[in-house]
């Protein structure tokens, strides 16, 4: 466990965009215009280019944005949302939650106990190095192709980044702070809650972020590999039946799901780690 799979030493937020420093102050209207252009210009250009190229060349595999939008509205504003999308998301979140809780609990145990850590380290190094998708065929052999297979795949893939990052975070608890907690007679449960988990939270969140990205991948491909429902299944089915606009609509939805889950996670992370950003900024400013 000498090297964690985390990125906490780097800021997890988008680096602050340096606003261009105008030599003379820009009028407010111009600033709003510029800001809008920052957000919208490139997406508009890209979509425009795509629309133009599909409209002129008209490849079968790349339908026009209009066709994709139609297919999207027709497909996902219907009961397919309930049949295919919602169950996928429930499996995803169930697996992710189980992995998160298991990873944090085991991580704390390993992080606190040097002996246990030294004993399990090589085995864990090996287990976490296994690319999680290969567990799908295995889980099918073990539990079949039902929901529990998919959840198990997600759990067994996502637990590692959480576990290893938690270990790293728990090990990095400041010794001075740990001494302080002892001096003031903090009990074990308080110490765990107030000291260990909180001071490891930047690493834990970094692990959870990786786990979430992995969970989405595993959800999709476990459905693509063997399933009769779910978003991944639907997309592959469209592709196999050459329902191209529908396939694109599925891909777009998948992209939106990834975007939305990451955004929600970002909000939670921002709240949990507000102190950490402040601390970093303060240390940096000095």
């Amino acid at each position: 466990m000498s090297q964690p799979t985390h990125t906490t030493e780097r800021p997890a937020v988008q680096a602050p965009a340096h606003p261009p420093k105008p030599r003379r102050p820009m009028p407010l209207a111009a600033r709003i215009l510029l800001r809008t252009a920052h957000v919208l210009l490139l997406p508009a250009v890209l979509i425009g280019l795509y629309a133009y190229s599909t409209a002129t060349s008209g490849s079968y595999y790349t339908p026009t944005p209009g066709l994709i939008a139609d297919a999207f509205a027709e497909l996902w504003f219907s009961e397919r949302l309930l049949v295919d999308v919602i169950p996928s998301l429930i499996r995803l979140l169930t697996g992710f939650t189980i992995a998160a809780v298991t990873g944090v609990c085991l991580g704390v145990v390993l992080g606190v106990s040097k002996g246990v850590r030294a004993t399990l380290e090589p085995v864990l190094e090996f287990l976490r190095a296994i690319p999680p998708p290969v567990l799908i065929p295995l889980m099918i052999l073990l539990v079949g192709i039902d929901d529990s297979m998919k959840i198990l795949v997600i759990v067994s893939g996502c637990v590692w980044p959480v576990l290893l990052n938690t270990v790293e975070g728990v090990r990095a608890v400041d010794p001075v702070l740990a001494d302080t907690a002892r001096c003031y007679g903090l009990r074990t449960t308080t110490r765990l809650r107030v000291l260990v988990l909180r001071s490891a939270s930047p690493q834990i969140m970094a692990g959870l972020r990786l786990a979430l990205a992995l969970a989405i991948i595993l959800m999709v491909i476990s459905e693509m590999f063997a399933s009769s429902s779910g978003l991944g299944f639907a997309i592959v089915q469209f592709q196999r039946t050459f329902a191209i606009p529908e396939m694109w609509a599925g891909m777009v939805l998948l992209g939106l799901v990834g975007f939305a889950l990451t955004a929600v996670f970002g909000l939670v992370e921002g709240r949990v780690l507000r102190w950490y950003r402040g601390l970093r900024a303060a240390n940096r400013g000095e």
Binding site: V176, T180, C183, Y184, G185, R198, S199, Y276, G278
Partner: peptide, 19 residues
């Protein structure tokens, strides 16, 4: 650590709970 004793460390930044 006895209950009647308090300690102030040199490393103030590291002995306070930043959160």
């Amino acid at each position: 650590p006895p209950p009647d004793m308090a300690v102030v460390f040199q490393e103030y930044g590291r002995s306070l709970f930043a959160w």
